[in-house]
């Protein structure tokens, strides 16, 4: 795997909500093992972009090429997941009535997730080991048999990250992972994502610029449904166009 290979390439993606173009000819690509941060003002289409990639939203036109030429457009969410795209939602999306351990167990990548194999399936020792290991990674070893619903907000966010990790995705889509976290939790999350990016490509949507500076190598700026700038944090912050968008909006707000 070289840096030159693209794991994801979105070409001219358009998403149209009754005349409102949430994504307007959006072109966006990610390399293998890259940690990419997407920023942009509210309504820029960041979440919609992730929705398109993971199959939650169907674009009106455009292509989303994953790995070696698989077009994700038109595929359903389960199949895209099986191809190796993992998604962490903005609001923590976990199974509140199952234990933390069960939450992770359901997420482990397995050969088949059909009804009957799942009915008969028992976790193999290797799988258990991986789950325990992940519990350590996300810092929830002490809570393995607690109801997931009883965790704190930050712990739920981590649990969901852990669930996505166990899917062994080639590409991990993470939507605002640190929203509502304390500074310490934010920092830990940053380290976790950085560590993960050694094995898989990650796209993170974030607002918190301190956090962005902590983890980002390359930042993509999205506004009004298109990519307007891409580069290092310093480059992006120096970009006039980007300043105009953020500061211009700020002016309007005053």
């Amino acid at each position: 795997m070289t840096d030159g290979d693209l794991i994801l390439n979105c070409e001219n993606v358009v998403v149209d909500y009754d005349g409102f173009k949430a994504l307007n000819n959006c072109n966006f690509s990610v390399h293998y093992n890259e940690l990419r941060v997407v920023i942009g003002p509210n309504g820029a289409g960041k979440t919609t972009l992730l929705d398109v990639i993971c199959g939650k939203t169907n674009p009106a036109s455009g292509k989303v090429i994953f790995e070696k030429g698989v077009n994700l457009v038109g595929k359903n969410a389960e199949d895209i997941t099986k191809l190796g795209v993992g998604r962490k939602f903005q609001a923590p999306s976990i199974y509140g009535n199952l234990s933390v351990w069960q939450n992770l167990d359901l997420s482990v990548k397995r050969a088949s997730k059909g009804v009957f194999p799942t009915l008969m399936g028992r976790s193999s020792p290797a799988e258990r080991e991986r789950i325990d290991e992940t519990l350590g990674t996300i810092g929830l070893s002490d809570y393995a048999y607690d109801r997931a619903g009883s965790l704190s907000h930050g712990q739920k966010q981590w649990l969901e990250i852990g669930m996505v990790i166990l899917q062994d995705p080639l590409l991990l889509l993470v939507d605002e992972p640190v929203a509502g976290m304390s500074d310490k939790e934010t920092e830990q999350t940053g380290r976790l994502l950085t560590a993960l990016s050694e094995k898989q490509a990650i796209v993170v949507i974030e607002h918190d610029m301190d956090f962005v500076r902590q983890i980002a190598r390359i930042v993509t700026v999205l506004a009004e449904g298109t990519v307007i700038c891409e580069g290092t944090v310093e480059k992006v912050q120096a970009d006039d166009h980007v300043r105009e968008i953020y500061l211009g909006r700020a002016k309007v707000a005053h």
Partner: peptide, 15 residues
């Protein structure tokens, strides 16, 4: 139970 709690998460876990 997972479907009851969060159907979309189940979908994005490959079920």
């Amino acid at each position: 139970i997972a479907i009851r709690d969060s159907e979309s998460r189940v979908t994005f876990s490959g079920y």
